[in-house]
Amino acid sequence: MKFPVDRDTRRRWFDVFMSGAALVCVGLALLPLGSILMEAFVRGAPALTPNFLTQPSLLGGIANAIQGTFILIGLTSLVALPVGILTGIYLSEFGKGRIGVVVRFFVDVMTQTPSVVVGIFAYSFVLTLALSGLVPRTLVFSVISGTIALSTIMIPIVARTSEDALRLVPTSAREAALALGIPRYRTILRVVLPSCASALVTGGLLGIARIGGETAPLLLTLGSSREFFSGLDQPIAAMPTQVYQFAIAPSLAENQAAWGASLILVLLMLGISIASRAVIRLRAVKR
């Protein structure tokens, strides 16, 4: 059976056309990324004066927001890393039965809960405690409230990444140590955890990358502050909420400040993303 040549030509052109279309799709995705980075540099860089970087927003800077973000990341990591990793250990080492399945399901549900809902929760939680007189009313908008929100977001992420990391450690490594008569808990702490350390670091970085840019839950819980950190039960500023407030402010100077703060925030987040990649790459090279 012979097919007319023009059919084949048409098919070949269509092939080229569709390949081109796929390439255009990649371009369509890179366009916003490029535009965001470029605009952040062009509009944000002029805002980055020494004053901007060292003064609190009361005096026209964002130093207090930078400080706030680092405090929040630090406190949240302090809560979420141990809790998350222990949960991961439970899921991979002990949770074999039905309870393990249930825990894993709940953890998955938590990773998928919209962050704004988590913000509502943290606020409502502290509010409920305050209304029943257990904590002072001021705690509702505070560093602690924000940390509760961010921890609720970060714990399940760390739990699942550490579970995956621990599962990658071959059973033979565990059995070799157990066979030497080393108790199980020491085996896990001394053999299993160290051999997947870099994967745990990646998980931690992933978690930090997620919470570092979170805005909605902080908007609902941090309150507003134009000064440096003044106590765990006080409101505090953070980079993402600061960007939001600058962005919706009706003054050009503040809009430019929004771009400046964005530039720092974006670079920070991309840096963490790339770092977590680098850790993965490093591990791959080692093997």
């Binding site: 222990l86 949960t87 439970y90 309870i99 953890v107 549900v109 809960t113 739990a159 108790p183 702490l189």
Partner: peptide, 29 residues
């Protein structure tokens, strides 16, 4: 060993408290 029991107990407790957290979220909301 006793250490094993403590460690397993601790990690189970933490894992269950994460589940508890979700329950608390729902109840509070």
């Amino acid at each position: 060993t006793p250490g094993d029991l403590v460690f397993e107990g601790l990690s189970t407790l933490v894992a269950l408290s994460v589940v508890g957290l979700l329950v608390v979220i729902t109840v509070i909301l």
